[in-house]
Design a protein around this nucleic acid. Sequence first.
DNA 1: GTGACAAATAAGTCTGACTTTTTGGTTCCG
DNA 2: CGGAACCAAAAAGTCAGACTTATTTGTCAC
Lengths: 233, 233
Amino acid sequence: MSTTGRGLHGRVLDTLGPAITAGEYPPGSVLRTDELAQRFDVSRSVMREAVRVLESMHLVASRRRVGVTVRPKAEWNVYDPQVIRWRLAGADRPHQLRSLTVLRSAIEPVAAGLAAKFASAEQCAELTECAIGMVANSRGHKLEDYLVHDVAFHRVILAASGNEMFARLGDVVAEVLAGRTHHEVMFEDPDPAAVTLHVQVAEAVREGDAVRAEALTREITVGALQELDILAP
Amino acid sequence: MSTTGRGLHGRVLDTLGPAITAGEYPPGSVLRTDELAQRFDVSRSVMREAVRVLESMHLVASRRRVGVTVRPKAEWNVYDPQVIRWRLAGADRPHQLRSLTVLRSAIEPVAAGLAAKFASAEQCAELTECAIGMVANSRGHKLEDYLVHDVAFHRVILAASGNEMFARLGDVVAEVLAGRTHHEVMFEDPDPAAVTLHVQVAEAVREGDAVRAEALTREITVGALQELDILAP
DNA sequence: GTGACAAATAAGTCTGACTTTTTGGTTCCG
DNA sequence: CGGAACCAAAAAGTCAGACTTATTTGTCAC
């Protein structure tokens, strides 16, 4: 899938970004632009552009006479999709996955409640289609097809909430769901109870029942938390 | 308060960023690097760095032979603190404030529940101090002092949740609370009921009562939603 | 109309010289 | 011994100009 894309500075970021987010350079580490330019065999202009991008993500801070210093993790722009992707691709993956799942558990139920109020007829139709698609692929090791509909389902919910901030989490949720299917333990067919819940959420949204949509979605996210052993007994 | 800060490219961003996020350039608009460099009276290198930053925020896309095109709002990195600040400072302010308040209403209750489980002794103490500070400044038009403690309170909750994604929303919440006090209608002293709720949340967290902490915080955020006339009867 | 080819265009890249800020040391008094 | 003033080095920041490369658009032949 797409990394930073084209351009020399993008190539540099493709290695520097993951390295920094993986914690290879401890906070406070000092990098020098010229040295980096040499290391990556690019001109200083290109390296400066790369540093600017890292700076805008708050991964580093550039100060005169001292160099480019790596900032502590607590200051990173952890909502930057690029940063999320880098972390998901590296050693921090499990931790990042847990953080994102907790985030989902907070956002999605509220989004579903709003979707019940504001979803358009088209969105309701889409939602139902997705739910049907999930049912259709819930048995017989069709995990890949199931995933497609699962992702689409959650995207529609987030978009239908009418909140732009929620809508932008579609990619993140997609990343989490895909990660669960591809990298984590996911040998068997999905939990039938979860599939049913999705169908019921689609129903609730269609009927405009915000309270029920929220409660059902909360059940779904609780399931996601349990999968990662997050939750107190 | 801090904008992009030092550096010539930062100055450029200080005017270009707000302009784009304010919608002055409709989606698809084409800017040319050379022209911009002239307009801002900077070298192309500096301009290129600025464009790279805007690109990393997904505000624009740079393509050869065509120029720097403004992306549709739906693709912006709306969680980027810089983008949030730009939008809060511009014409989009009311809309942005509503989005953020809805976001808060989803996140903070969950964060409070987690804080009840994971808050350290120090954090509990801080929380109590903040609550006391809020009470102490809840009467007599000491809005500014009240705000300081209010912001601190919510920061501690988010940090104590133990979730890095939640913790990073501290700045956003601070921005929203400050905005409410400074720009919106806020002539009178804060609602006594809200103050009490904060005290009770501090209690609940101290006692490790996650369910109660979450419910009480939900009441607080419902109040915030009502202030902006978000909510169905 | 379709295909190939050529020209125009704007971003992308590199280089080298120069400026500015910050820091750390040194020296010179008190 | 301590502090203030000063100096020099280091690294980012800035600029200008030449060159490369990809992409689009227009043209011309078939």
